[in-house]
């Protein structure tokens, strides 16, 4: 599991630039499904054919990052966020453009109060001495991801982009040991989730499944002086009750809960006050798709040091397999 996560999380795939991660995933699942396609927005759709129910399983392959918007005469790059980037997380971090160009994120020193820190008074330094030199490596509109190696810390994996390469890993592992079922399963690695659940919406429209399950990360309430939340790392997969994007469909929620009971893994319920997932877009597609979410409890979401428990992720695979068989 760790190796798979490392491979996926280490790949480049800022929202809107998912080409590289898409290839990596494609290679992982090649030959394991009946059909693989890429749609107009770039969603990767892997189909296991069957004559039973149509189930869509979604994990987004995009990650947050930054986009170059201006290059000054000394070669410094001004940037904008791609997805939700907190300026304080970005400060002092290293970013990497798709072509491998590394950059340091820092802020205008004249800034007196750190609370006035905004992305617009920060910049990226790629070590170039002039606009021309920078332009050879980076052009306006290019995106960069935050750098955060994938390492083990106890039973936890620490990395950038566990949101949602953790979910992608769950899908990849499920595909590699495909559950024995007659259901027709659409594994969708979606694009542009961080920009507003876009890929999930358009891919669901094309598939029109009977039900959908999204796999994504959720916040936790198990760190010092944090916001109240019942979800804990190591407490098992979290079954979503609601978030900002939707209320989980009771039928799918029950399917997930019953599946967890059947295989005897720990699980927990999740109410997430901020943020949404692909399921929010999928469930209002067409005449409605009952949807639910299996969440990976994850600390420090949208930072380069996201942390999640490996056993939780492994249990997500078991749980998903059971759901696909049991529906």
């Amino acid at each position: 599991m760790f190796e798979t996560i490392k491979k996926l999380a280490g790949s480049f795939g800022v929202s809107g630039s998912e080409e590289q991660i898409r290839e990596v995933i494609k290679n992982e699942i090649d030959g394991k499904v009946d059909e693989i396609k890429v749609d107009a927005l770039g969603n990767l759709i892997a189909v296991k054919k069957g004559s039973g129910k149509k189930i869509m399983v979604a994990a987004h392959m995009d990650e947050i990052g930054v986009m170059a918007t201006y290059i000054d005469e000394k070669g410094f790059i001004r940037f904008s966020n791609v997805g939700w980037v907190w300026q304080y997380f970005a400060l002092g971090q290293r970013v990497m453009f798709k072509n491998g160009t590394a950059g340091a994120v820092f802020y205008e020193q004249k800034l007196k109060e750190i609370k006035d820190l905004k992305l617009s008074n920060m910049y990226i330094d790629i070590g170039a001495k002039s606009r021309e030199e920078t332009e050879k490596k980076v052009k306006i509109g290019d995106t960069a991801c935050f750098v955060g190696d994938t390492v083990l810390a106890g039973n936890m994996v620490m990395s950038k982009a566990l949101d949602d390469r953790g979910g992608c890993a769950v899908l990849v592992k499920t595909i590699q040991e495909m559950p024995d079922t007659d259901n027709e399963i659409y594994f969708v690695f979606t694009v542009q989730e961080e920009l507003g659940l876009r890929g999930a919406k358009t891919s669901a429209f094309g598939i029109m499944p009977d039900i959908a399950i999204a796999i994504d990360v959720t916040d936790t309430g198990d760190t010092p002086e944090c916001e109240l939340m019942e979800v804990k790392c190591g407490g098992g997969p979290a079954i979503k009750i609601k978030d900002r994007s939707f209320i989980a469909h009771p039928e799918v929620r029950r399917l997930i809960e019953n599946s967890a009971k059947e295989i005897g893994i720990p699980y927990q319920f999740e109410i997430m006050e901020q943020g949404g997932t692909d399921a929010g877009a999928i469930h209002v597609t067409g005449g409605g798709v009952p949807s639910g979410v299996i969440s990976i409890p994850c600390r420090y979401v949208h930072s380069p040091v996201e942390m999640a428990d490996i056993t939780d992720i492994e249990n997500c695979v078991k749980l998903l397999r059971q759901c696909l068989k049991g529906y």
Binding site: D39, L41, N43, M67, T69, K201, T202, G206
Partner: peptide
């Protein structure tokens, strides 16, 4: 800048994208 928006946003997301 990456602020603001226009009709492309809705068209991009219509039907299958």
């Amino acid at each position: 800048t990456t602020t603001g928006g226009n009709d492309a946003g809705k068209i991009q997301r219509s039907r299958c994208g």
